[in-house]
Amino acid sequence: MELSPIWRRQWRTFRRNRRGLWSLYLFLVLFVLSLGAEFVANDKPILVRYQGELYMPVFNVYPETTFGGLFETEANYRDPYVSELINEDGWMLWPPVRYSYDTINYDLEVPAPAPPSADNWLGTDDQGRDVLARLIHGFRLSVLFGLILTVAASAIGIVVGAVQGYYGGWLDLAGQRFVEVWSSMPILYLIIVISSFVVPGFWTLLVIMLLFSWMTLVDLVRAEFLRARNLDYVRAAQALGVRTPVILFRHMLPNAMVATLTYLPFVLNASVIMLTSLDFIGFGLPPGSASLGELLGQGKANLHAPWLGLSAFVTLALMLSLLVFVGEAVRDAFDPRKYLAGTGETS
């Protein structure tokens, strides 16, 4: 579908903000790289050639016996014995970081947490796991969690706001009061209480947080729809006999999206921060998950190992700053006073 001229003009304005544009590029590169985290940081080789045949340990599980070993269990490619077997009659292609987020390095020469070395570029945490690998996987987890939460929360918020704004009256009044009561719930305590009788996983945590974060956009979208329902083109569509859902989604939503999209990067940021802080205090993802918050927590517990706290801090700061810069550029791009500036339109 071709972009409408309004979108094209807004994209031009967005690109004029160099900082936002470069932040977007950088963020996308980091995000795409982290999506393939298994190919960047893993304790299995990407490709193995053994006795003339190709194996992909990243995708498949091969028992040690495949490579002439003794055990029926999955081959541990980091084991010098296994790697010797393979290298005798083939080769292995390793990812740049030879640790996954949960690989424990048993060969540390110093007690964990170990400082950065040629082997562990950013050191290890207090359980001997590679910090860089955990950062790469943790970045992916945080952004994905944030994105899913943002999209789901926005979708619910937009529909609720749209219905409230379009119909108005009692529905609006009841909806507003409900949102007010609901949003005054202390979400952090609720999660702490809930996590005392269920161990929250990725999806349960997502659902719980979704329950309390869909309200962000409701007021905004509601206000836009309240305004839009009295616009002449909406009235004209009503007079044509266009059905209500079509009016809502074809005529009103695209014009209300401007205000909404402006908020999205900031909602995404808030979601990431929420997850990180839950992990930090230990009520977030299950133990062992690649989590930036948990790494921060370790940094606090191990002040003598500054590489823990510093790495987590720099990663978080970078990710959140990039998102804020992108968000600012998006906000400017959608500001009609900015994207119309210089076109000579006066009233």
């Binding site: 083109y233 007079a239 014009n255």
Partner: peptide
């Protein structure tokens, strides 16, 4: 059918 006063507000800018 109906035609409104404001030629700017009566057409959806995105269609």
């Amino acid at each position: 059918q109906v035609v409104f006063q404001d030629p700017y507000g009566s057409l959806n800018p995105r269609l």
